[in-house]
C-alpha cells in the first residue's frame, strides 16, 4: 500500500460511526444502519468506506458465490462490486435505498456482465477445487460434494429466484427487508421464495445427476 495513499483502516471517528451503525442495526434498522458511514465516505473519509467494505464484504461475496458458483470468480466479482460502488458513491442517494441494496444491485449487474463476457456456466467439477477457500467448522456440516452441487444448482436458477433464496435463507433477512432490497412487496417475496425453493430442489437434483454422469464417464 502506498503510505501516502488513503487509509482504509478504522479510525476513532469511524469506530464511533460503526458503533452507531451497530446500534441502528440492533434497533431494527438493519438496512439503514450504514447511513452515517456512507455520509462520511462521501465526504472523503477513506476509513468510513473501509468500514463499509468490512461490513458487507462477506455478504456480497456469498451473493457472488451463489451467482457464479466459483470461489475465484466470486472473490474477483466482490472486489469489482466494491470498486464500482466506490466509483458511483457520489451518485448514490440514501433516500429509500439502503446501501446494501445499492451493493446488491451493483453485484447483480456485475455478475451479468461477467457471465456475458465468459459465456459459460460453472459445473460442479469446476467448483470442487475451490471448496477450501473460506470454509469454517460449520461448513463441514455438509460435504464438499453437496456444497458444490448446491452452488451449481443455485447458479442454474433464475436471477430473481436466486436473489430471494440468498437473501432469505443464506443472509437471513426478513421478508420485509428482502422486499425492500428487491423492490417488491412482502407478499410477492413470500410467493417467490416458495417457487424458488421448488426450482432449487429440481436444479439440485439435475446438478446431482450431471455430476454422477460425469463421474461415470471419467
Amino acid at each position: 500500500m502506498d503510505p501516502r495513499g488513503p487509509s482504509f483502516s478504522s479510525t476513532g471517528r469511524v469506530g464511533a460511526l460503526a458503533q452507531e451503525a451497530d446500534r441502528a442495526a440492533v434497533g431494527g434498522g438493519r438496512l439503514d444502519a450504514d447511513a452515517a458511514l456512507v455520509t462520511a465516505a462521501k465526504a472523503g473519509d477513506a476509513a468510513a468506506f473501509g468500514e463499509l467494505y468490512e461490513r458487507h464484504r462477506d455478504e456480497i461475496y456469498r451473493f457472488c458465490l451463489a451467482r457464479t458458483g466459483s470461489v475465484h470468480d466470486a472473490e474477483d466479482l466482490t472486489a469489482d462490486v466494491f470498486v464500482k460502488a466506490l466509483r458511483s458513491l457520489e451518485r448514490y442517494e440514501q433516500r429509500g435505498t439502503p446501501f446494501i441494496a445499492f451493493l446488491y444491485r451493483i453485484a447483480r449487474n456485475a455478475a451479468i456482465d461477467r457471465a456475458r463476457s465468459r459465456q459459460r456456466n460453472p459445473s460442479a467439477e469446476e467448483l470442487s477445487p475451490h471448496m477450501a477457500s473460506g470454509h469454517d467448522v460449520e461448513h463441514a456440516a455438509i460435504s464438499g460434494t453437496e456444497r458444490a452441487t448446491l452452488l451449481a444448482a443455485l447458479a442454474r436458477l433464475k436471477q430473481s429466484d436466486r436473489d430471494v433464496i440468498v437473501l432469505r435463507l443464506i443472509e437471513g433477512y426478513s421478508g420485509l427487508e428482502v422486499a425492500q432490497v428487491l423492490g417488491r412487496s412482502e407478499g410477492a417475496v413470500r410467493i417467490l421464495q416458495h417457487r424458488a425453493m421448488e426450482r432449487l430442489r429440481k436444479a439440485y437434483a439435475e446438478a446431482e445427476a450431471d455430476a454422477a454422469k460425469k463421474k461415470v464417464r471419467s
Binding site: G134, I142, L151
Partner: peptide, 12 residues
C-alpha cells in the same frame, strides 16, 4: 440446512 451453512462462507 445446506443453504444456512453457506452463510458461514468468508472471502479468503
Amino acid at each position: 440446512e445446506m443453504l444456512g451453512s453457506l452463510s458461514h462462507e468468508r472471502m479468503g
